[in-house]
Amino acid sequence: MSLTNNGDKSGSASTINDAIETTPKVLLAAQQLGVKIAGKTICQNLDLELKAGEIWGVLGGNGAGKTTLLHTLAGFREPDQGQVLIEQTPIKQIKAKHRAQKLGFLLQDEKNAFPATVLETALQGRHPHLGHWQWESIEDEKIALKALEQVGLSDYTERTLDRLSGGERQRLKIATLLVQDPKIWLLDEPANHLDLHHQISLLTLLKEQTKQQQGCLLMSLHDLNLAWRFCDKLIFIYPDDCTREHKVEQGDKAALLQAEKLQHLYQHPIHCLDTAQGKVFIAG
């Protein structure tokens, strides 16, 4: 059972080099985005460009609007101003099925009225790629079994969802996304319910996948250490009562993950320590 993708390392390095030479393509963009929920402004005039090969993190306190921002970027809800574009096409003009071929979303919570099996659930990721009356093929099944192996659920294929733990269900959701195989990944708290080992191994897997396939990934996180380790760029959504000029700030992780900014973000003192293993963040 291998949890990390030990695929062709040299191959992935060369793709990255190729991508650096040419300007990376913008996969997902927001233009002058304004999002409000229940009368509360989450962002205004937000311009955002997610380029091929980039991994972004969204950080903010509870109720700051991370999920709402992600849902807006995925086209699940209308922005109050501005627009979202997938590869230059406004997301509103893209059919739901075509959107799902390009953009995958990891939802925070999930309901199961009548639980299906693990394999059936993973196979549902093929839905956007199948024709109307088409059944999943042997190829689709191979893709699903491989994804289940990557998240360490190979032994559970026939189990029903109600017999999985929270962490196993989270891994299954990630497997469904791997099966869906989108270019743009939007993940709402992917580290939820996962133990330390799986947090690291699955985020490593997703990072390698994004770099190799020149996709892009945006995830909301609560763990600063994970954000430091896995993200290239960050978006901070500051709380309402914060006195900062901009409510939403974006930039390279090194510029944003500073004690003073984090103090504003969480309204709580946070210490940054430089250790032999790298930067470490500790709540004061």
Partner: peptide
């Protein structure tokens, strides 16, 4: 939401 995310 899950159905929406998978293109329904």
């Amino acid at each position: 939401m899950q159905a929406k995310a998978l293109g329904v």
